[in-house]
Design a protein around this nucleic acid. Structure first.
Lengths: 225, 225
DNA sequence: CATCAAGTTAAGTGAAAGTTAACATTTCCG
DNA sequence: CGGAAATGTTAACTTTCACTTAACTTGATG
């Protein structure tokens, strides 16, 4: 895996600088936000492995932010750790209620921070559960085995086709815009031509059947259910 | 069993001498290291039953060393106990997070140390169960005897090949990414070239048969079931 | 019926995997 | 101890095939 991504949320720039420095030294990819709203936006974009969240923040506090993050399906594998001043033990309890995975007390000791973060990420890795299988209308998709089963017949799709199908089947019936398809399957920074998606859709239609994939002109595609 | 092996890691020679004297008197085979890197090297070599690890060390501290040791598959049966100054209670928490099995507070009292070590080793002995045998499609793998049986024919595979096969067979059909293969078979800190996994896969294919190992381009490998 | 999004096709490209031999390292034995 | 054998890793080269593109066609829609 490339370096683990950490999103750091705190309204004090000093703290951000301190923590960022130490985490970057330990080879993490660090992103930061100074309030809850920004945090959620960035979290959705970069899909961090771990979010370090200050409890005390103006406007939307850490607790509220945590709850909102936990409501994002796409972030359910993200760990959340609270940064709390020692003695605010109420925060800790309420924090776990809000869906936090750990808390780290201030003042931050760099060494402790880094080993704590490492321990958390290790825990996350070992928790990697088998992926759930998605199925609809005679098609089942198994991410662990990287295969698609159509009426009992096993197919092995190439990576991009598999990911595209996964995406569309993640919410059958829902239309995914070309834009959102590009950003989930190809990534935000990759630039590919207009016809690339079409070609992949075509391959899926060839392999699985025309009718599963509905074109919504001017918008995108959806998996028919 | 011959005398239990203990690896002692501390940067202060005095402490090493003291502990070594007492442990040797109690009939243990004692090895020592004065820093984390050396510790890992020796641990891999002598496969100690127990590692006594000082928390406070220059360069790589005990916590970090512990984490790295825990990442070595071959050392997963090794016990790790921290040596910590009384009152550093943060260390204890973080230490268990890092994968420690016990901690012993300084200053060291020889009698306490020896009985603590004995207790730990007793615990270990009772925990070491015979490994389970895995089998699938005419191949059975016996971790205790370190052999692979293919249609009744016994093969002895070299370590890396054996571990790679073990991993893939631990969940037949499931795709393991190159990343996860590297981290379980080689360890997270070892850097080996891109083609190393391929070569080992090739050897397995040669010895066991092409069809058992399926390449999933851009993703990884799986054991075919 | 003009326009433009989407479909189709085949070919080109490049990244990932395969292969091989050589080199390095460790282990094994006489 | 010293040389041989086994193992692990790398480097260099080849092969493969997934992906993208370009160029063209189709067809929906206002």
């Amino acid at each position: 895996m490339e370096n683990p991504k950490i999103l750091l949320v705190d309204d004090e720039q000093d703290i951000i600088d301190l923590i960022r420095y130490n985490l970057e030294k330990a080879d993490f990819e660090v992103h930061s936000a100074s309030n809850g709203k920004e945090a959620i936006r960035i979290a959705r974009k970069v899909q961090p492995d771990l979010i370090l969240l200050d409890v005390m923040m103006p406007e939307m506090d850490g607790m509220e932010t945590c709850i909102q993050i936990r409501e994002q399906a796409e972030l359910k594998n993200t760990l959340i750790a609270f940064l709390t001043a020692r003695g605010e033990d109420y925060s800790q309890i309420a924090g776990f209620d809000a869906g936090a995975d750990d808390y780290i007390t201030k003042p931050i000791k760099p060494r402790v921070l880094v080993s704590r973060v490492n321990a958390l990420l290790r825990r996350k890795a070992s928790l990697t559960k088998p992926e759930k299988k998605k199925s609809a209308k005679g098609i089942m998709i198994d991410k662990d085995r990287y295969i698609v089963v159509k009426n009992g017949e096993e197919l092995t799709l190439p990576k991009k086709e598999f990911e595209l199908l996964s995406l569309l089947m993640s919410q059958p019936g829902r239309v995914f815009t070309r834009e959102s398809i590009l950003s989930s399957v190809w990534g935000n920074d990759v630039i590919v031509g207009d016809r690339t998606i079409d070609v992949h859709i075509r391959k899926l239609r060839e392999k699985l059947g025309e009718h599963y994939f509905k074109t919504v002109k001017g918008v995108g595609y959806k998996f028919n259910d």
